[in-house]
Structures are given as structure tokens and as C-alpha cells.
Design a protein around this nucleic acid. Structure first.
Lengths: 203, 203, 203, 203
DNA sequence: CATGAATGAGGCTTCATTCAT
DNA sequence: GATGAATGAAGCCTCATTCAT
């Protein structure tokens, strides 16, 4: 598939450059969307010539793939935070919802997530990466649900899977909501979200 | 704004042609995305020359706007179906969820909805149309929730708004879910969705 | 060249239709220019379907050719007016200049004349028609200059040709002037034009 | 207005490229006219890809504007030549007319000037640039007429303005004349032009 | 390693012209 | 005679990608 392994003499510098590009592209995609953000803008934001970016990424598409990879890692740390936190799972989630809703209501974040999903609908590689990320997130969530601190640790797996699917749907949906309904505020959401979380996290 | 009202002598033919284009464009946007689908492909799919499309639509953008309008009308009839249906609202929604989840899990439908949301994130006109459609949908939902057949008709408005926001988030989220998690099936979802609906539709 | 003689059953009607189109196109070209005026607009202005115009003219180009032909005839009558007028030629021309300058300062008229000259620079047929019209105008002018009422009727022909060339240049130039210098008014022009006319029309 | 200043690292190269495009476009506009000359042809003539032209010009319109600017500068140097030349103004102009008429009779030059005027009749920006150029030319001419070497330096300004308008009309008109009357030669024109110049440049 | 000049395919849109009715 | 729906070539412009330096 890739004929050009593109070895770099200084792997550390290379990694730094890749990060520069990923961050810059991330910003640009957020602001303008994947299609509307041009390589020219990305290169300017990254402080690097357009041509040089191709020494680190095979294509614009490869950049969005790298962003997904990075976001997956961010997601891991969020879940790890939950895993390490003491106390009842329901309480953790309800507390986390406060921050989480705020974060997911961020309009620019929505835009980027939408771009990626949208791209996934027709780009197999992107779809595979996102699906993989989602699978791992669900696995981590299930692990949480089966931990000692969970009131539903004894429910059958299939039941847990169902609850996770619905819970994740809700989170994704909240992210999208902002596009359609920008005046919606965090507190309103929490008013209805908390009872739903309770439904999903208690037997 | 538009100097060319472009009256058509045979309004029926004109409407048929518009529908041809809207359907063709829907397909193309689903398959390739709004940006990637070219007018050439749309025109071929519609069985009509590219130039001729411009006798019915001012621009490619006008086509996606028409699609949104069409979908809005479809949404109205779904709600009207609910409004005319007898019986307890919770029961209606739980029954409706059966069909609804199936419909929303349809991968092609998801792709098109994603395209539109995605476009909305940076196209104000599209955003406005979708927001308007969403506002009306929420109003209809509130009307349902305040009808005699609803167990929560006496809750404060703000509470109803919150529940609606979360409920709609979940529906949108389910639509997106399919992209990330294609092996998810309807019955699994209903397993967890029904209790959540109950939570949202009872005091 | 023309395979389709296009005989019309009712030649009078046909001529009326041609005139309709010529007048409409004349207006449109004046307002928008030859290229910018579309057949759609011309047909609307003419009160006739676009397709039907092609029963009377082979192409858009044929229309501008017909306009030139019409204008040539207008030009004839102006000269005929001069020929029939009594009195000294210089006086006639000085008097005529008053009206003429006004007419030639008309901005829309300039636009149409410019369009035609511009088209002539690359369309042989148009060039030929305009040249023919110009040749006849110069011949008529020479006839005037050689008439009894002219003070310069005994100058050698070559001298007359030269004066005509310069005089016609000035008229064309005044027409164009309006585009570059719109605030220029008739009286200012006459102030300098009359002495020049005198120079050209006296020995 | 323009978000992309498009700085070029090597300003000399950039200027050379701009000149390449300007020259190529001049040729194409002459031959085919502004509208009929396509970017494809211009790019081929310039020996440069069509896309690359847009690194130096924002649009096709910007190219014609640059041509106007270039011609304005040429015009300045002609006037500066006159200003620096010693001797009586009338003599200078009569001598200048010899070269000037030749230059203005050049068919290709005419074609381009016609294109620009023609475009000015419906493109405000082009009209403004040409008008500005013309205004400056008239100012320079007035300066000449008011210099010591002029026999008419004491005439009232309004009288000078009038003479300038008529003189410039004549020059523009001569340029156009060639299109209608190609067999006209320089000597014939001078025969009548010199007395007119004398009329305009003496009290 | 790094640049940005250069390419060229492809995008949306317009419009003179044709033709079935 | 008359219509206007339909065509399709051509137009201007954008942008991911390459390559000489």
C-alpha cells in the first residue's frame, strides 16, 4: 500500500513536525471543515511549507486519520480517569456529565466530529479507525460497568451492551444537537440527562 | 436577490423534474457526500443534462436546501401520525420507536443526515433551515407531551424542553451510531431504549 | 453559406417579427452589451420565445448584423436631411453639431457603438457591414462638401477625404469620450468644436 | 476584500511572471476580445498553467485592470517626453502627431483599446481605472498648454478644457477609425490633422 | 530538511441553440 | 407559427499534490 516508508533521520524532530501538522489541521478543520480547509491554510497554521507536509503525511486524508488516532488516545485517558476514580459509578458518571456536556456542547468540537463521521461514511479507512476507537471505548465502558463500583455489574452482557449503545448515542447526539439548537444550555440538558443516566446505570 | 423567477408553463412537469433532481441528489450525497458529489453525477443520476438542472435550482446549494425541506415535510407527517393516534403517549412512542429505530439505523439515511449536519456547521443557510425544522419538531413534540394522552402534561415547560432535547439527541445519536457500530441491531437498542423512553415520558 | 432560406408564409408578419427582435436586441445590447445580453432577455423583451427568434435569425450574431443595417439607414436619413437643407454648409454643420453632440454623448448609444466596433475587430461580417456603412457616409459627406453651398467645393478630392477622415474621427471619438469622461457637457465641447469645424469646412 | 496577500518570496520572478501574463493576455484580448479569450488560451500563450496565473492575479478581470495600469504608465512617459522637450508646444504636438498617428493607427492597438472601452461601458472598476487614467492625461495636457512654451497659456481654463476634450476625442477617434477604414494612411490624416491642431493650440 | 512555484484535473455554472409538441 | 424544455460545450476558478532548488 505504502511504497514510501519515508524514514526520517531524526525521529524526534519528525514526530514534533507531525504533531505540529496534526494540531494545525485540527484547528483548521474545526474552523472551516475538512473540505473547506485547504492545505495552504494548514501549512500556514503549522508554520511549515505546504510541500513539506507531504514529507510527513501521504495526503490530506492521512492527516485526518492521524487526528482520529490522537483523539482516540485522549478518549483513553478520559476513561482511565473514570477507572481510577473512587466511588459509585453512577455518581462518577453524573459528575462527569457536568464537564462532559460542556465539552460536547462546544460548537467547534462538534464540527470536527461531524467532519470525521461524515468522512467515515465514505472513506473506509476513516470508518475503520473510528469504529475501532468506538469499539475500544465501549469495551472500557463495559469494564467500568462491570467493576465493583457499579450497581449493574451483574446484568447480562447483552443488556450492558444495549445500555452502552444508547448511552453513547446520547452523547454523540448531544454533540450534534448544538448545531441544530445552539441556544440549548448545559443546565437544561442535565435536568433530563441525569434521570436517564440513572435509568441506564441502575438495575 | 433572484432576478429570474423562472416560471414554468407546466407546473406539474416542473415539479416532477424538481423531484427527479432532489431524489438523484439525495442518492449522490448519500454515496459521496455533498462536496464530493458533482453536478455531473447528479445530472446523470437524474437523467437530465447538468445545465437543465439550473432551470429548476439556482445552485447546488439550493438542491440541498430543497432536500432539507422535503425531509422536514416527511418529519411533519410522522408527527401528525403520532398526533392522530389514540392511546397513551408513552405507548405510542414505544411502539413508534420500533419503526423509528429501524428507519434511523438505515445506513444511507444516516449518511445523508450527516452530510446535512456537516454542511450546516459551516453554511448558515443550511444551518438555519435545519434549525427551523428542528424547532418545529420540538414544538410538535411538546404539543404531544402536553396532550391529554400524556402522563407528563402537567410538568413545567422547562422540564419538558429538557426532556425533548435529550430525547432528540438520542435519536440523532442513534442515526450516527450506525456509522461507528454497524453490527448493532434494532432489538439490542430497544432493550435499553424503552426504559429510557419511559423515564422521559413519565413523571 | 445559408442552407435554410427560411421562407415565411406571411412576409409582412415576418418583417414585423424581425423588427420586434431588432428593437429588443438593440435595447438589450445598449443596456448590457452584446455578450452580457442573453437570448433569454432578448426574447423576453421582444415578447417572443427564444426558440422562435431562430426562425428569423440564424444566430445572435445575425441580429447584431441586422442592427447595423438598420442604423445605416438611420444614418442615411440624417445626411439626407443635411442635403435637403438650404444655406451654407458650415452653418448647417455647426447647427447640426448642436443636436449631434447631444445625441453622440448619450451613454447608452456609446455602449452599443462600442459593442459593434469591438465585434468588428474580430468578426469579418460585422466589420464589412460597418465599413460599408462608413464608406457610404463618407461618400455622402463628400457630396455635401462638393455641393454648391460648400465653401470648400473646389478643394482637391484628397484634401476632402482627409478632412472627412478627421471629422469622422472626431465624432466617433466624442461618442467614446463619454465613457471616460462622463461629466463632460455639450456646451464645453461646442466651444472648441465649432472652431475646428470651421477649420475643416473653410479653405 | 482580499484575504490572501500572496506574498512572493522572489519579487523579481513574481514581477516577471506578472509581465508574462499581462503580455499574453494583451495579445489574446487583441485577437479575440476580452470575453472570447479564455483563460486556457491566455495560459498557453503565457507559457504557464491556467491555475498558476491565479497566484499572480485574483481573476481575469484583475488582468485587464493590470493592462490598463501598464498602459497608463506608458501614457505618462509619452507626456513626460513632451514636457521635457524644448520648443513651441504647437511644433512639439505637430511633430508628435507624426509618430502618434502611426501608433494609433496600429490595428492591434486599436483592438485592445476598444476592448477596454467596451468593457468599461459595463464594468465599473474598469471604467474607473480608465477614467482615472484619462483624467491624469488631461491634467498633463493642461499643464503643457499652460507652460511657457504654449501660445495659449493665457486662455481661460474652461477654454483649455474644451480644447483638450476635443483633441483627445480626435485621438481616440483616430484609433477607432482604423477598424472602419483600414486603407486610410497616415499622410492623409496629417493633411487635415495639422490645421486642426493649429486651431486648437493657437489663440 | 525545507521551500513555494507550478501543475492540471475537476468543480460549478452559463448560454446559444435545437427540437418535439 | 410558436413555445420553452432540454442540451452540452465551454467558461472561470480552486486546490491537492509534485518537484527543482
Amino acid at each position: 500500500m505504502s511504497d514510501k516508508p519515508k524514514r526520517h533521520l531524526d525521529p524526534q524532530l519528525a514526530e514534533a513536525r507531525r504533531a505540529q501538522v496534526i494540531n494545525a489541521a485540527s484547528d483548521c478543520f474545526r474552523r472551516k471543515g475538512y473540505h473547506a480547509a485547504g492545505m495552504a491554510e494548514i501549512s500556514k497554521t503549522a508554520g511549515m511549507s505546504a510541500g513539506h507536509i507531504y514529507n510527513y503525511f501521504d495526503s490530506k486524508e492521512a492527516i485526518i486519520e492521524a487526528i482520529i488516532e490522537r483523539d482516540k488516545e485522549e478518549m483513553f485517558s478520559v476513561f482511565n480517569g473514570f477507572l481510577e476514580q473512587p466511588g459509585d459509578l453512577l455518581q462518577i458518571m453524573v459528575d462527569g456529565a457536568d464537564d462532559g456536556v460542556e465539552k460536547h456542547l462546544d460548537l467547534e468540537r462538534s464540527a470536527l466530529e461531524l467532519e470525521m463521521l461524515s468522512e467515515a461514511a465514505r472513506n473506509e479507512k476513516v470508518a475503520a479507525l473510528l469504529a475501532q476507537s468506538d469499539t475500544q471505548a465501549r469495551a472500557l465502558m463495559k469494564q467500568l460497568m462491570q467493576s465493583e463500583r457499579s450497581q449493574i455489574r451483574h446484568l447480562p452482557e447483552h443488556e450492558l451492551d444495549a445500555r452502552i449503545a444508547v448511552m453513547f448515542s446520547m452523547i454523540t447526539g448531544l454533540t450534534m444537537r448544538r448545531v441544530l439548537h445552539p441556544e440549548l444550555d448545559k443546565d437544561t440538558i442535565l435536568l433530563a440527562l441525569n434521570p436517564v443516566l440513572k435509568t441506564l446505570l441502575t438495575p
